[in-house]
Structures are given as structure tokens and as C-alpha cells.
Design a protein around this nucleic acid. Structure first.
Lengths: 214, 214, 214, 214
DNA sequence: GCGTAACCGAGACGGTACGTCCAGTCTTTGA
DNA sequence: TCAAAGACTGGACGTACCGTCTCGGTTACGC
């Protein structure tokens, strides 16, 4: 857990918590992470500073929980879609398994591209990732709670592909998924190249069939 | 623009600049980026704060130049090695081309692993990367001046491999290199997995020969 | 006006205020006014700088209030003396009226001499006077709150003397008092001559009986 | 002497000195003493800072000499007047002696009133006096070089009046003059009352004939 | 149904670092 | 060969937030 241990959570003001989440996310999106201050969040949320420090240990911690909450809500919303898979949004419902691995991966990555280009997600996700790079404790929480669960969906899909004989048995799926996920992540984080459907499609092809002539 | 009357760079104190670089790098390594302050750098460098603000616009800016300077020196030092390959350090001299692409890539990535695990590089590089994630202007400089030149070495090596028929002609080398470079970068930045020689070797194999059965 | 939202004076820390007054007065006495800094006062008072800037607008302002407070306390203390006249200290209780004007004035001026030679009063009073010379706003407050009330005591005594026929009816007491008060003030401020009982006695005699032969 | 001892005065640039005096006086008049900086003086005078520090030890020192120079020039100019007494300006030529002491003193004090109300004199004189109140070393120079010589003119005139039997023989002229000079000085410095011809005339009458009924 | 214990908004507090300004010294450079 | 120009170390300025600490007020639970 990230919050402090002590106070009585049953008496906690739900209204304040929501207001703080909203204030934190909107401030990060508006003025950027470094200019977002605890004081500013408190002011915008119409809340005393102590109410923030009572439940969270730092600005990063607030934002982390706000973002987790946002992700959860988005996922829940996506879950109400047509039949269990939202094309955009968090794919907590799992990666489609049509039997065509390449197509399934491309579809999911295209959805991820959409998400990365949506400023509602970009600003806080970027801020939290940056903080996690430098603040290992927060980084671990971020990875454990948000990133790794997503990646495990790829692991599952790749294992299914192995069962179907579409992926070599000696391949470690946890490493394999990085071949197409990490490049996209790096382009997003470091602006090392454009982020397009073409690009992610290409990544999948290269990863599945290799660079060497067959 | 109504910028300040630019200071006269010809009269700049070389001694101060070096002291500031050294102080910035050592402080980041010792106490971490967030606790590194301009005041602290000035104090350790034995320099007035104004001398820092005269030449740089922010803590991040100082550290960026300090790190670029460090990289340059390291590269220069590596260039003086026996015959063009420093085992550790920046491979500005180019990636070896023995004709065996897999072996060459594995060697270089193993050197990179060493570098990433060296705290002298890790601390400032991590700090700058994090800052660049959130501060696009600085991020672009970081990428342009440091990261992209490194990546172009892979592009060159991959093109040579294409000429030799070891890599398919229709592969875009700039994208291809991301298959093994980005996963390593992400594991380093986000602590999403261990960083070992085995891991990088595996990445090269997966990337070259693909995940699908041949 | 777009002034700041005035701080809530009811929540003000009395302890801090006292500590700041004490620190300001002692620092001025020890190192002189120009070397007294807001930072120094804050440090000695064990107080954040902002606590000073929250309630005062400048170093001079702090010192002014500290001195007013000191004067008030001293006056209060003097008021508790035997029967309404402290021999040293502020004569807020009034100038004695024994019927002998010359004697009464000499007594009070001798007490003032004692005060002027006491470093506890000299240092801050001198500093404030100097600041008031150059900063009219502060000067007016200093005069209105401290100097003029003192001078009005002389006015009262001189009027009483007029009623008794010891001073000419056509004399303006507010001007008359300057004949013996201002010379003393100037010698003190500008070191234009020694400050002694003899000197003040002489001033009273000259002023009462004139320079011209009778 | 006020300047530092060392450098070769014969090689000193007369032009720079004048420019510095002019810059110092005009800056003090324009922005006040505290906001007048050595850097500002140097910039306005078109002079390097070192040229100021070479010949003077501080801002106050520069201004002191600038003002002495101004006084000297003004006095010289006054000396060229009709017959040895300028009605305005420094009365270095002496106090008139028409045989009517009261009239002579009133005339001179009226001229002083004019001077005190002239901003060209008021600003630097006030600044220097304030500095002298708090900086004893500078104060002594100011008094010795400027104030006391003026006061000695009154001493001379009063002695002459004693010889003529218009002032009592047992009166100390150095103290006597303070009865009318100091009140004027105090009103000027501390804004404790209006400064008018009437006021100075009254001071002379009170001082000569005393407050007590004759 | 009445204390009383907690949370709450508010914001003053002791601090740290910011980025700016100027003092006074030291160094370079052009006239 | 000097003096202008100005970079240097140093240190105070006044501001912005940090994280802690009261302060009343307002619930809401347990006696």
C-alpha cells in the first residue's frame, strides 16, 4: 500500500477524495507535473492541505491513485461495451483471440496508439512514468499495479498462440511481448519517432517473422 | 524577443564550468536528482549561483550539458583504445562488423548492459531521461544529441547486414533496431525486469529469427 | 488595490512576534542596522522568513514595531514606579510640575540624556531615525507615534508655566520646546558635540532667559 | 581623508570623476539613496565599476565627495555675487554684520530655508545625513567638512555681537547658535513641523529674548 | 440524545530552495 | 597602458511550497 497507515478510513470523505483526484488530474493536464503543487490541488479541490497529507504521502502518490482510479473507471466503462472488449480504453477484459495472432496484436496495439495520443491519458501517465523513473518506490507500484497486469494479457495471448503452434515453444512470452510493446513505449516516452498504426503493424510483423530472411 | 544581453562567452571561466559539471554529476549520483539543487551545485563547485544562472536556465539544463560533456570525454577516451573498440563506454567508434550480425549486436548490447549498471552513468542518465519525458524541449535535445546518434550506429550496422544478405531488404533498419534496443531501455527505465547478458542475447535472437516457427 | 488576502491576525503566534522583536532589537544593537538582515532576524528568532514577511513589509517596519513595543513596555514599567515619575525611561507619565519650570525641564532633560547614552535605546532609535530621514512614510509613523507624544508633554508643561506667569503668553509652546529639545537631538544624531547634564542645563537657561542681556 | 590611500592620483581621469559625481547626485535625486547602486552610478557615468572602487570605498563615500564638490562649486558661484553675500547658497562668505543681530540671523536663516526646500540640495543632503546618523565614520567627515564650518560662521557673528554688547558675555556662542539652528535642522530632517520664514524669525526672537517674561 | 472523538476547511508555522540583485574583486580586451 | 566592460564569488532579497501544526466547525458513533 502507498497511503499512511493510521487514520480511520471509514470516516473518510468520499467527496473530498473525488475532488482531489479530479483536481490532481486536471492540474497535471493543464500546467504539467512540476508546476502542480499539493497546495494547488488542495485549493482547486476546496480541501485543506492536511486532508491530502492525511491520506497520501506525496504529490506523486496522489496522482498515482488518481490515475489508478481513472484507469479503473475507464476499464469498467469499457467492460460495458458491446461484448466484453472495448476497442479503445484499457483492455483489462483481455486481448481478443481470433486465431490470427498478428491481427489480434495489431488491433490491440492500434487501440493503445489511440490511447497514447489522447491527452487525457498522456499527461498523467507521462508524469507518473517520469516520476517512477527517478523514484523507484513509486515506479514499482506503478509497474505492479498498472503496467504489469496489462503485459500479462499479452503473455496469456502468446501462450495461447504457442498452444496453437503459431509461436515457437522455446520462446519466453514475457520477453517476446517486449519486442512490440517496448518500442512503442519508447517512442511515446522519448519522442524518438512518430506513433502510427503503420508503425505498430510493422513492429508486429518484424517481431513475428524476424529480421533475417526466412 | 526582449531577452537579456547575452553574456560574453569568450570571457567565460573554464574552471568554473568544469567544477559545475563535476559537482552536478556527483550530486545527482549521491543524493538523486530531486534532492540535487542549484544551490547545492554552486556550493560544491565553489561558485556563485549567478554563475550557474548566467549560463544555464535550469538544473536540468546544467545536468544535460554536464552529461553530454561526460559522454564526449568518455567517447574520446574510448577512441584511444587499442583498435577502435572500447569494451565499455560509448561506442561512438561504431559497432563492430565481423560479418556475424548476431554476435556483433550481442557484444554491443552486453557493453550497454555494463554501462546501464554503472551508477556513474545510471544516475544522471536516468534523471535526464525522466526530465525529458516531462519536459519536451529538454527531451528533444537529449534525444537528438545523445540517443539518436547512438541509434544511427545500429542503423549503419543493419544496413551493412542487409548488403550481406543477413537481413531482409524490405526491413526498415531504424525500426528494426528498436526490437532489441527498446526492450532493454524499458527494463532499465521502469524496472520491468532484470537486465542481464542472457536477456540481451535472447532479444537479439528473437528479433533476428522471429517468434513464429520457421 | 489588488493587495493580498490579509492574513488572519487572530491566529497570529504571539511567541513568534515577541521572538522577532527581541531578535531585531538585539541584532541592531550588536551589529548595527545595515548589517541586520531579515534573514538574520528570522534565524535568531527561530522563525521562518515568511512569518516576518507575512506581518511586516520591511526590515525597517519590523524594527519600528519592535521599538514601539519596547517603548510601550518601558513606559508601562515606569508607570509602576513610586509616584508617577520614573527617573529614566519614557516620561509618558508627564513632566513634573513643581512650580519651578527651569528645574523641572532640567530634570527631564537629564533623564533624556541618560536614555540617549543607553545603548539599548541608542542603537534602534538611531537606526529608525536614520531610516525615517530617508523614508518619509516610516518617518511620519515614527514621529507621530513616538516623538510627537513626547513633545506634547513639554507643550503641556509650558502651558502650565504660562498660566503661572513664568513664560510669556505670546510664546508658542510647540516652538518654544524646540529651543532645548532640538539641540540635544542634533548633538545626539550628528555627534556635533558632547551630551552632558551641564549642556542640557545650559540649554534650559539660555532658552528661558535669552541670549540678549536683560 | 575618505578615499583609499594607494593609487596614483596624478593619472586620475578628471572626466570620469565629474561624470561619477553627476551620476551619483542625479541618481540619488531620482530614485533615492537606497535604490542608488554603485553599478547604477558606473553605468550612468559610462565608467567601469573598478574605477569607482579604485578611488572611493563605498556608495556613501562617493556621494559624500560628490556633495562636497557640489557645495564647493555652489559656494564659489555665490562668491561671485554682488558684494560677497549670496542670499541663497552656502554662506561661506560669512554672515552679514549690519549691527542688527536679529535681522542678520533672520536673513541667513531665511536663505537656509530656501536651500532646504530646494530638491537639488535636499535629496543628497538628506541621504548623507541619514547615512551619517548610522555610520559614525562618515558622519564625522560630513560634520567636520560641511556642517561645522557653517556653524563656525554663527560663532563668529555671535562673538561680534558679544563685543557690541548685544549678547551676554557669559553665553557660549557654540551652544547659543544651536537654539535657532537645531530646531530648523530637526524640522527638516524629521518633518516635525513646517519650515517657513515666520518660523525661523520666531526662533531668533525666542532665542535672543528668552521665553520668560523680561 | 449527548458527549466526544474524528474528520474537515483553513491557514499560520519553521523551513528550504528558488531565481534576482548587488557588493566588491579579478580578468580580459580594445583604444 | 590604462580604463571600460563585465565575469566572478558571495550573500541577502522577497516568493513559493513543503510538510507539520493548530484552530473552530461539523458529523456520527457509543454510552
Amino acid at each position: 500500500m502507498v497511503s499512511k497507515p493510521a487514520p480511520d478510513a471509514t470516516r473518510r470523505s468520499e467527496k473530498s477524495r473525488r475532488a482531489i483526484y479530479a483536481a490532481a488530474l486536471s492540474l497535471v493536464a493543464e500546467v504539467g507535473y512540476p508546476k502542480t503543487t499539493v497546495e494547488g490541488i488542495a485549493a482547486r479541490a476546496g480541501v485543506g492541505k492536511q486532508t491530502i497529507y492525511r491520506w497520501w504521502s506525496s504529490k506523486a502518490d496522489v496522482l498515482l491513485e488518481a490515475f489508478l482510479d481513472l484507469a479503473e473507471q475507464t476499464a469498467r466503462a469499457a467492460g460495458h461495451d458491446t461484448a466484453g472488449n472495448g476497442t479503445a480504453g484499457h483492455e483489462t477484459a483481455g486481448i481478443p483471440d481470433t486465431g490470427d495472432l498478428a491481427a489480434d496484436l495489431k488491433a490491440v496495439l492500434r487501440a493503445t496508439v489511440d490511447e497514447l495520443l489522447d491527452p487525457r491519458f498522456d499527461a498523467p501517465a507521462r508524469a507518473l512514468t517520469a516520476e517512477g523513473v527517478v523514484n523507484e518506490q513509486l515506479g514499482r507500484v506503478f509497474v505492479t499495479r498498472l503496467l504489469e497486469p496489462q503485459l500479462q494479457l499479452y503473455v496469456a495471448r502468446l501462450r495461447s498462440a504457442q498452444d496453437a503452434g503459431h509461436v515457437r515453444r522455446d520462446v519466453d512470452p514475457r520477453i517476446a511481448l517486449e519486442l512490440f510493446v517496448s518500442p512503442l513505449a519508447q517512442r511515446w516516452l522519448q519522442h524518438t519517432g512518430p506513433i502510427t498504426y503503420d508503425y505498430t503493424d510493422t513492429l508486429v510483423d518484424y517481431a513475428l517473422y524476424g529480421l533475417a530472411p526466412r
